[in-house]
């Protein structure tokens, strides 16, 4: 009886300890540890899907579901985003009215740099995504901004991702301000929203590879690596933040602002989680 009592007391204390630990660590600037978060995320998926190699997560749901993968591999034989890469290359190399081009705005003339975005920009004091950098480049050269979600900006982003394929994501958190942005993105990822009261994590951690009506949500690990994507539902190319807005609408929440602080920080967190995986964008998705 004493053993049973001890076990019960022990289990109770362990329960309380785990609640306390979860409630008091990782949710403040002092306690958040991005690298520990990344390793915990990888560990979660590796335990849940032990048959899936870590580097295969760049393929999203196709790393988990054999049937979907078969269809996707057939789609990839004639990639639907191929023309967009070509168009993106033309746009990227077309000079602005002032004679300058996108190459002048980026490190390494914009080639093979996708893995470094989003990044903390010290001079602006905020997270800068690749699409934001593209539009900032345009404005700096006297051109009008492009729309954020699809069309030319997605094509330019697709071309830049294509030139970065197989480069390893290496998003940096250089200071406490960047860490605060990471923490804000982390909070957004785990925060329930909308009438359906769901968070990103509900579908893409707990719900990964579990049917939601006819769809299988992909794992968050490797989510960002293949964007922008040509989505069959859209019938065209779209950016990651276009998808964020769609997800928020799906849970019946009013979408947050595209390329606003919340979405940029969310993208920063999500990309940090995929550090160590390779760029394989643009991709094709259902």
């Amino acid at each position: 009886m004493k053993i049973i009592k001890s076990l019960l007391v022990g289990a109770s204390l362990a329960l309380v300890a785990s609640i306390t630990q979860a409630a008091s660590s990782g949710n403040t600037l002092a306690s958040v540890d991005p690298e520990a978060d990344r390793l915990a995320m990888q560990s979660f998926f590796q335990k849940r899907f032990p048959q899936v190699p870590l580097d295969d997560y760049v393929n999203g749901i196709y790393s988990l579901d054999a049937g979907s993968r078969e269809q996707w591999e057939e789609i990839e034989e004639f990639p639907p985003y191929e023309f967009d890469i070509e168009e993106g290359e033309i746009l990227f190399n077309t000079a602005f009215a002032n004679g300058k081009s996108y190459a002048g705005c980026f490190a390494n003339a914009g080639i093979g740099i996708r893995q470094n975005f989003p990044r903390w920009d010290e001079s602006q004091g905020k997270i800068v995504t690749l699409e934001l950098a593209i539009n900032q480049c345009r404005e700096a050269n006297g051109e009008k901004k492009l729309g954020w979600k699809k069309g030319k900006i997605a094509q330019i982003s697709a071309y830049m991702a294509y030139t970065s394929r197989d480069n390893v994501f290496d998003v940096q958190i250089p200071n406490d301000e960047a860490k605060a942005a990471y923490l804000d993105g982390k909070q957004s990822f785990y925060t329930r929203r909308g009438q359906l009261n769901m968070s990103c994590a509900n579908c893409h951690i707990a719900g990964a590879n579990i049917l939601i009506r006819a769809d299988l949500p992909g794992p968050t690990l490797g989510h960002v690596t293949h964007f922008p994507v040509f989505r069959s539902k859209w019938g065209e190319l779209g950016t990651l933040q276009r998808r964020y807005g769609g997800c928020q609408k799906n849970v019946r929440g009013v979408p947050q602002k595209t390329q606003g602080e919340k979405f940029r920080n969310l993208e920063f967190f999500q990309t940090y989680m995929s550090n160590g995986l390779v760029v394989n964008g643009p991709g094709a998705r259902k």
């Binding site: 979860a22 990782g26 949710n27 909070q187 785990y190 925060t191 929203r193 968070s199």
Partner: peptide
């Protein structure tokens, strides 16, 4: 209410 609840409860969903 969802907003206020999320401010304290989001951390409970993070995998450890």
């Amino acid at each position: 209410a969802q907003y206020h609840q999320s401010q304290t409860e989001w951390i409970m969903a993070v995998p450890e």
